[in-house]
């Protein structure tokens, strides 16, 4: 018997592959974007290109911005892990086997975690390859993004632990609306921040500076501790979310289509 993780792996193979290949595509996008921005400068060698890219500090904020978009893409696709099994018949059939509810949810939670972890490893690997290319050409290496990738992984787990129970109990369609509401609220907050920020033009640069401080270990002790405790909190939240989803799943399944 192969188990529910295997079933989820086969059923969501494209999502898993997406998690694996998205980071290299994101990095190609960053470089292409910069190439377009600097297209006017004819005869620019790769060495000059990467040197300028590093010197004016656009590499780091660009990477963060495009990675954020990649993570939103991951969230939208993660709904497909749940929507694939949104059938009343399937759910009741699964619930009829011993520990069916727990096994169904276990498979989905494991596959989501696995894909996000795969995204993390792939992003770290791609970033290190880019660092090697830049180092080989310029002799300088961009700062390590490992800490940031780790933080993003746990942030994603934390966010998923909030929205999965909604998806399970209201279905992915309605669950999407919950996510949209959260997204719109976040965008509104961001817009307000930009409008009232004293240096709105450099906002992304300011955020990048805070992250750089975090990566270089220059934050205050208390702040550093809170950040280091966050991964534990997010893992605990993910486990609690699994338990809640197990309780809500069959109640939600009643509302699914046959």
């Amino acid at each position: 018997m192969q188990g529910t993780v295997y079933k989820e792996l086969v059923q969501n193979r494209f999502f898993v592959l997406f998690g694996l290949f998205l980071p290299p595509l994101v990095y190609i996008a960053v470089i292409l974007l910069e190439l377009i921005v600097r297209a006017g400068e004819a005869g620019l060698s790769w060495k000059q290109f990467f040197s300028e890219f590093l010197a004016d500090g656009t590499l780091f904020p660009n990477k963060i911005l495009i990675l954020l978009i990649a993570y939103i893409g991951m969230r939208l696709l993660s709904a497909s892990v749940f929507s694939a099994d949104e059938s009343k018949c399937k759910c009741f059939l699964m619930a009829s086997v011993p520990e069916g509810t727990a096994r169904q949810m276990y498979g989905k939670y494991v596959i989501l975690f696995m894909t996000y972890a795969l995204f993390f490893v792939s992003a770290f690997f791609t970033d290190s390859v880019l660092s090697y290319i830049v180092f080989s050409l310029t002799g300088e290496a961009p700062p390590s993004m490992l800490g940031l990738f780790a933080l993003m992984l746990f942030l994603q787990l934390f966010l998923r632990s909030i929205d999965i129970p909604f998806m399970v109990s209201y279905g992915t369609k309605n669950g999407k609306y919950v996510f949209m509401i959260v997204l719109i609220a976040a965008m509104l907050a961001f817009a307000i921040l930009i409008l009232y920020s004293p240096s709105s033009e450099n906002l992304i640069r300011i955020v990048a500076d805070v992250i750089l401080k975090l990566l270089n270990g220059e934050l205050a002790d208390e702040t550093a501790f809170c950040i280091s405790a966050f991964p534990i909190v997010s893992i605990a939240a993910y486990l609690v979310s699994y338990r809640i989803s197990c309780k809500l799943w069959l109640k939600g399944a009643v509302n699914y289509e046959a």
Binding site: A224, F225, S228, A229, P231, I232
Partner: peptide, 19 residues
């Protein structure tokens, strides 16, 4: 705070870097 920071980091860094 810093001792707790490092100990906490050791706890999650270990499984994370298991890849």
């Amino acid at each position: 705070w810093m001792t707790a920071y490092y100990l906490m980091q050791a706890l999650w860094l270990s499984p994370l870097m298991a890849f």
